[in-house]
Design a protein around this nucleic acid. Structure first.
Length: 566
RNA sequence: UGGGGCGUGGCCAAGCGGUAAGGCGCCGGCCUUUGGAGCCGGUAUUCGAAGGUUCGAAUCCUUCCGCCCCAACCA
C-alpha cells in the first residue's frame, strides 16, 4: 500500500471517521454534502476558520460539496455588510462554494409549508402567552415546565391563527408558533420550543415580504434537508439541540435525512472569540475596526499579514475533538513564520535608527551591494541595495558596555554588515544628556560582500540601511490584545468588564523608521521579512513614498530570551 | 438539585484490551553572512481518582472527583 493511502486510512478525527464509515456504508449514494452556515451578523474570526476548514475540507476530501448558507432568520441583527465580508473571507481563505450560495431566507415559503404540516399533525400550536409567561411556564433546570393553556387549541384554530400571523394581523409578540413536544422533558430544549415569532421588521433580503420569522431550531434542520446536506457539523453547545433537530426532520416530509455532529469550538489564548465581545471592542473604539490587525478576525489577520495557507495549516494542526480547548497563540504564530519563511522576500529595515559613520569610506561615494532576496527560495532572485559612508543600524545592536553574551556591536568590536562589509566601532558620540547620538567607525575594504580574505570570523551580522538612500516609514508593532491568557475566564471570575483586561501596549507605532529604497513603494498587502526582525506586511494606510508596515510576527529571538533571563 | 458533553505531559492531540503516535513549547548539541532558517537528540513507568474484571486495562465494569453547556419570541 502506497504511503498516501496509508495516510488517508489513518484516522484524523472522529468526524472524518464517521463520514468515512457513512461513505463505506453507501449513505446518500455516497455523496457527502456539508454546509458552512454563518449568520450574517458579524465578521468571521479564526474560530470560524476552523469550522470552514472542516466543512469545506471534508467535502473536498470525500469528493462532495459544501454549501455556503447564510442563516439569516433574524432580520433585526443581520445585514448585507456582513454577508459581503463573509464571502470575502471564505474566498480569501482559499475555499470555493461555486454556485452553492444559499440563504435560509430563500426557504421561507417552504419552511412555512412545513410549519403548517406540523400544525396539521397536531404537533405544533399557536401560543398567545407573553414572552415572560412562556419563560415562567418553561420551568427551570431542576423543575419541569407547565403546559400553556393554549396547548390544546384545535388544529383548525391553530391553522387560522398561524395564517393570520403571517398575514400581519397581529403585533410583535402577540403569538408564537410552538412545537408540541414535552413540557416536562429534562432537556429544556424539548419543552415546546418556539418555532416562529412575529417580527414586523425589514429583512436584508426579503424586505417586508414576511412578518413572521422561523427560529434557528426549526429553520436549520429543514434547510439542511432541503439542500441535501448529509453531515451537519456544529459546535458543542448544540448537542442538547440534536434531539429537536431530529424531531423536526422526523415529523416533516423532508427530502433528505441530515445528521448533526458536534465538535469543540476553537479558543485562542490572549484573545476573545465571541462576536458580541469583538463587536464591543469595535463599537467602543478599543480597536480601529473589525480589520484591526490585533483582532482575531479573518480580516484582521489578513491585514496583519497572515497568509491563508498559514491559517489553514493552523486549523489542521489544532485538530478536531470534543474537548474544550485553549490553543496557544504561539502555535498560530509558528504557522505563519513557517509559511512566510518560505515565501517572503527579505528586506532590510531599521526600526530605531542609530547613525554609524564610516570614517575611511569616501565621502559622496556609494555602491550597489548584490543581495539575495530569499536564501530559502532561489527563484526569488537578487536585488541591489545601496551602501554608503553613513548608514543606520538598529539601536539595540549597539551596547557601550556589553554583557558577556551580547556579541553585537560595541566599542572596538568588529561585526559584519549583512551583504556588505566588516566594520569596527571606534568612537561613541553623545549629547549633553549623555545619550548616544552617533557612532563612528571604519570598514575593511577587503571584506566586500561580508567575507574576510584572511578567514577571520565575527560573531554578529547586523542589518543596515544607507542613510542617503533610505526611505522613511511607519512601522506598527503588535502585541497580544489582552494581558491575560484567558480573558473570558478571568473577566467572569473577577466580575470585571473584558475591556479592563486589554493590553495597553498591544500597539506601538514607530515613526521615522528607515527602510531600504525598494520598500518605499511596497504595495498594500505585500509581505516581507525584515532581516533579523520579523515578518511585516504593507498596510493600506501607507502611501507611495510613505509606507506603513504591520509586524505580522517577530522572528524567533534567542538573544531576547537570554537577555530576559538575567 | 434535572439533562447533556468532556477529563492522556505546559498547550493541543492520536490511541478503542497487548504494554503511551505526532505537533507546538521547553532543554541540550551541530551548523550558520538573519542570535533567523535548517539538522540531531532529550522531554508522560503513565492516561482525573479509587476499586474491580483480565495473563494483560488509557482502553471493559463500578463508584467518586473536576470542568463546560442548557431555563432568548438569538444563532
Amino acid at each position: 500500500m502506497p504511503a498516501a493511502d496509508d495516510a488517508r486510512d489513518k484516522s484524523q478525527d472522529f468526524i472524518r471517521d464517521i463520514v468515512a464509515a457513512d461513505v463505506r456504508a453507501g449513505l446518500a449514494g455516497g455523496t457527502v454534502v456539508t454546509r458552512f452556515p454563518p449568520e450574517p451578523n458579524g465578521y468571521l474570526h479564526i474560530g470560524h476558520a476552523k469550522a470552514i476548514c472542516l466543512d469545506f475540507g471534508i467535502a473536498e476530501e470525500f469528493g462532495g460539496y459544501c454549501n455556503l448558507r447564510f442563516d439569516d432568520t433574524n432580520p433585526v441583527k443581520e445585514d448585507v455588510e456582513y454577508v459581503d465580508s463573509i464571502k470575502d473571507d471564505v474566498r480569501w481563505l482559499g475555499f470555493a462554494w461555486h454556485d452553492r450560495e444559499y440563504y435560509a431566507s430563500d426557504y421561507y415559503e417552504r419552511l412555512y409549508h412545513y410549519a403548517e404540516q406540523l400544525i396539521g399533525k397536531g404537533l405544533a400550536y399557536v401560543d398567545s402567552l407573553s414572552a415572560d409567561a412562556i419563560r415562567e411556564h418553561r420551568g427551570t433546570l431542576m423543575s419541569p415546565g407547565k403546559d400553556s393553556p393554549h396547548r390544546t387549541r384545535g388544529i383548525e384554530e391553530n391553522l387560522g391563527l398561524f395564517r393570520r400571523m403571517r398575514a400581519g394581523e397581529f403585533p410583535d409578540g402577540a403569538h408564537v408558533l410552538r412545537a408540541k413536544i414535552d413540557m416536562r422533558s429534562p432537556n429544556i430544549t424539548m419543552r415546546d420550543p418556539v418555532l416562529y415569532r412575529i417580527r414586523h421588521a425589514e429583512h436584508h433580503r426579503t424586505g417586508r415580504a414576511w412578518c413572521i420569522y422561523p427560529m434557528y431550531d426549526f429553520a436549520h434542520p429543514l434547510s439542511d434537508a432541503i439542500e441535501g446536506v448529509t453531515h451537519s457539523l456544529c459546535t458543542l453547545e448544540y448537542v442538547d439541540h440534536r434531539p429537536l433537530y431530529d424531531w423536526v426532520i422526523a415529523h416533516t416530509d423532508t427530502p433528505g435525512r441530515p445528521r448533526q455532529y458536534e465538535f469543540a469550538r476553537l479558543n485562542l489564548s490572549y484573545t476573545v472569540m465571541s462576536k458580541r465581545k469583538l463587536l464591543q471592542l469595535v463599537e467602543q473604539k478599543h480597536v480601529s475596526g473589525w480589520d484591526d490587525p490585533r483582532m482575531p478576525t479573518i480580516t484582521g489577520l489578513r491585514r496583519r499579514g497572515y497568509t491563508p495557507a498559514s491559517i489553514r495549516d493552523f486549523c489542521a494542526r489544532v485538530g478536531v475533538a470534543k474537548k474544550e480547548n485553549v490553543i496557544d497563540v504561539g502555535l498560530l504564530e509558528h504557522c505563519v513564520r513557517e509559511d512566510l519563511n518560505r515565501r517572503a522576500p527579505r528586506a532590510m529595515a531599521v526600526l530605531r535608527p542609530l547613525k554609524l559613520v564610516l570614517a575611511n569610506y569616501p565621502e559622496g561615494q556609494s555602491e550597489d551591494m548584490n543581495v539575495v532576496n530569499n536564501a530559502a527560495d532561489p527563484s526569488a532572485g537578487t536585488r541591489k541595495v545601496p551602501f554608503s559612508r553613513e548608514i543606520y543600524i538598529e539601536r539595540d545592536d549597539f551596547l557601550e558596555d556589553p554583557p558577556k553574551k551580547f556579541f553585537r556591536l560595541a566599542p572596538g568590536r568588529e561585526v559584519r554588515l549583512r551583504n556588505a562589509y566588516l566594520v569596527t566601532c571606534t568612537e561613541v558620540i553623545k549629547n549633553a544628556a549623555g545619550e548616544i547620538v552617533e557612532l563612528r567607525g571604519t570598514y575593511d575594504p577587503a571584506t566586500r560582500g561580508g567575507d574576510a580574505p584572511d578567514g577571520r570570523k565575527v560573531k554578529a551580522t547586523l542589518h543596515w540601511v544607507s542613510a542617503a538612500h533610505a526611505a522613511d516609514a511607519e512601522v506598527r508593532l503588535y502585541d497580544r490584545l489582552f494581558t491575560t491568557e484567558d480573558p473570558d475566564g478571568l473577566a467572569a471570575k473577577s466580575a470585571v468588564d473584558i475591556t479592563t483586561l486589554l493590553n495597553p501596549a498591544s500597539l506601538e507605532a514607530l515613526g521615522g523608521c528607515k527602510v531600504e529604497p525598494m520598500l518605499a513603494a511596497a504595495a498594500p498587502g505585500s509581505r516581507y521579512q525584515f532581516e533579523r526582525l520579523g515578518y511585516f506586511a504593507a498596510d493600506p494606510d501607507g502611501k507611495a513614498g510613505a509606507p506603513v508596515f504591520n509586524r505580522t510576527v517577530s522572528l524567533k529571538d534567542t538573544w531576547a530570551r537570554v537577555a530576559g533571563q538575567t
